[in-house]
Amino acid sequence: MAGTASYEREMEILRLLDVESRVSVTELSSRFSISPVTIRKDLEMLERRRLLRRVRGGAVRTEHSDEGAFELRLLHRAEVKRAIAREAARLVRDGDAIALDCSTTCYYLAEQLRDRQGLVVVTNGLRAAELLGSSATVVLTGGTLRPSSWSLVGDDTDFPVRGGPLGLGFFGVRSVSPAHGLLELSNEEGAAKRRLGAACRKVYALFDSSKVSRFAMYPFVPVDRISGLITDAGFPDEAVPAWRAADVTVHRVTAVPQD
């Protein structure tokens, strides 16, 4: 539980920095009702990961953060990602065997699945595994740890191939293409997702609409193996026919803030 509390504090610190650009040890200590010593340790850990820069009495936002840092991506368009996750969760039933990748949208999907019974979840995402560890049977794929995304990557992520077919697979993307399918920017990330996707009977891409026009190099699921795209209302109308022609369903959801 202590590790979870620390992670939640870190997320809140990053959220405050995103809004205010600067945080103080005194204010954070009061907000979390913990000692300044503990707050300084939190800030030190975040600085080591280049997510902020410590200054006298607190910390400031850094413009040199790792673009792929999981914590920062988790904050980006969070309500949209949660809406996509809620839609994806409708597909999952008690007792299903599914795959989740290491994306932030799949992290939000894992949040939605904590009340499911009897799930088997194969994932290369350490944060999703942590969320589901007490409510599902969680299997990690293996591979090399990539700290910026808290993921296991590389060609040795082979458990799904040995373990038999999974029902549903859910994947975040760097980009999508009706010609090339689901794509990643990193070769090692793509390799991990390719092996995970190959073990799934149905594959769904979960992404916010800003990914539609982004550059990516490495396909990991071809178009003929994609069952559906779950995205937001910003997904362009003109892009839908090409996906429908490939027999891929496009689900567009509207983000509504949750109380």
Rank of each mutant, 00 (worst) to 15 (best):
V37M: 13
L17Y: 03
I230T: 09
S151K: 08
D158G: 10
R56T: 11
S65T: 14
Q112H: 05
T254K: 12
L100I: 04
L14A: 06
S134A: 14
S35F: 02
K211H: 06
V223P: 00
I84Q: 04
T249E: 15
R201L: 14
E63R: 08
Y7S: 12
L168E: 04
G167C: 00
F207L: 15
S151E: 07
V161R: 15
V92P: 01
L72D: 11
R252W: 02
S210A: 15
E47V: 01
P219M: 04
E111P: 01
L52E: 11
R114K: 11
S177T: 00
R31Q: 10
A199D: 07
F170T: 07
L100G: 06
R244V: 09
A99F: 01
V161E: 09
S149H: 02
R174Q: 14
K81M: 13
E71P: 10
L132C: 10
V19G: 10
A5V: 10
E130Y: 06
G154K: 05
V250Y: 06
L14V: 13
S148T: 15
T144H: 02
L168S: 03
R214T: 11
A99I: 09
G181Y: 03
F215E: 11
R77A: 15
K41E: 12
Y7T: 00
D156M: 14
V240Q: 12
T38D: 05
F220G: 02
G133Q: 10
R15T: 11
F235W: 02
E79S: 15
S134C: 03
A136V: 03
T62I: 11
R252P: 00
S151Y: 07
L145D: 02
S149G: 09
Y107W: 12
A128Q: 13
E130Q: 11
E12T: 15
E79A: 15
L16I: 09
Q112F: 01
L17M: 07
I39S: 03
F170G: 09
F215M: 12
K81I: 12
D18E: 12
P147Q: 04
A191E: 13
R54W: 01
V253K: 03
A69I: 01
V203H: 04
G172T: 07
V153W: 04
K41L: 12
A216V: 01
L185I: 04
R31S: 03
S35C: 03
E238P: 00
P178K: 04
G143K: 08
K211E: 12
V37G: 03
A110E: 14
T141F: 06
A129R: 04
R225M: 04
V80M: 04
S148E: 15
M217L: 13
E238C: 06
C200G: 09
R54F: 00
L17H: 05
F171W: 05
A192F: 05
P160T: 13
L28V: 06
Y108K: 07
R195N: 12
R116D: 03
K193D: 11
G133W: 09
T104W: 01
E12S: 09
A192P: 08
A245E: 10
R22I: 08
A99T: 05
E184A: 07
V121I: 14
E188L: 13
V176R: 02
V92E: 02
H251W: 11
K211R: 12
Y107V: 12
L131Y: 00
I230R: 01
S134L: 06
P165L: 07
E188G: 05
L46Q: 08
